[in-house]
Design a protein around this nucleic acid. Structure first.
Lengths: 161, 161
DNA sequence: ATCCTTAAGGATATTATATATCCCTATTAA
DNA sequence: TTAATAGGGATATATAATATCCTTAAGGAT
């Protein structure tokens, strides 16, 4: 079980967009070049973010994407779910109902106890992702990434926004 | 991102094996019939459980599987990892190093901040799975599943073990 | 107006993984 | 001796991930 690589791409893109000055847009082309990923495919991930209302886009030259909310309002969970979907990682096929001891068509009132545990774990994963915002990520980056790298990257981005 | 169906199968099989009297084995054939899943493919999942040391097997007629530990010693995480593997759901490809502002070959001292968050969430998921044992599951089942169903199923299993 | 650049999205191709199925072997109980 | 079993390798099929290509509509620059 593995998240698609677009999740990583989307998170990094949002991290960059979070540092963009108000009113500026950054293009798919620039984001793809910055991260070394195929532009057309990255575009699909960004479209997902757009449809989820996390980013907004504009067309034409100097067009591209910017965040649709403040970095504090966007969580890792928002981004992961925009790309990966909201479905639980565990799908219960209710194989319990294949039990030959049950009369055909029998359905229990409650959820499968096994599925419930798996879904609780999925929820714990989502809770953790919901607890970290892009603003939090920015703070961590400013603490851990050398300032000259952040500065140079910011210049690179501004030239293209 | 979805766990493979073998995870569900393995969990249900372990749940059944947890109810087996000491010394008895239950065959792949019986487990497959009970759950309505293909025997040969289920066999792969059971082999995974065996290699992980969760169950032990014996050959020949009246052969099959039984738990290698007490139900209290086996957690959901053990079973999930036996089938799905221990790798994190998030793979960090370090696309941060594609940043054209970095000198070629630059490597940071710490982990990618984005990956760290994703790995923490993965850990939260695993922690939750680790907190529930087969013994806990059994308690829940005895509380929520009608007694006559449990009894009939137990008889069905004993006939084949 | 015209041209270039962009996002949006549909269609298609390629690759990897999940889901099986089949077959052979060694082991064990009856 | 025989039949049933787990183990495991080889192979087939289906589905999903990854990627590319192309068309369209919109926005900005000239």
């Amino acid at each position: 079980m593995q998240l698609r690589n677009q999740v990583e791409w989307a998170l990094h893109c949002c991290s960059v967009l979070a540092g963009l000055p108000a009113g500026r847009y950054l293009s798919t082309k620039a984001l793809a070049e910055l991260h070394g990923v195929p532009k057309e495919y990255l575009s699909k991930a960004l479209q997902g973010l757009s449809q989820a209302g996390l980013v907004e886009s504009t067309l034409g030259p100097s067009g591209g994407y910017r965040l649709a909310k403040t970095p504090a309002q966007i969580t890792f969970l928002d981004i992961v779910e925009a790309v990966e979907g909201k479905a639980s990682s565990f799908v219960c096929d209710n194989i319990r109902y294949n039990n030959p001891c049950l009369r055909k068509g029998y359905r229990a009132s409650g959820a499968c106890a096994i599925a419930q545990v798996m879904w609780d774990a999925d929820q714990a994963w989502r809770d953790k992702l919901r607890s970290v915002s892009l603003a939090d990520l920015g703070k961590t980056l400013r603490k851990t990434v050398p300032a000259d790298i952040l500065d140079k990257t910011q210049d690179w981005v501004l030239e293209r926004s």
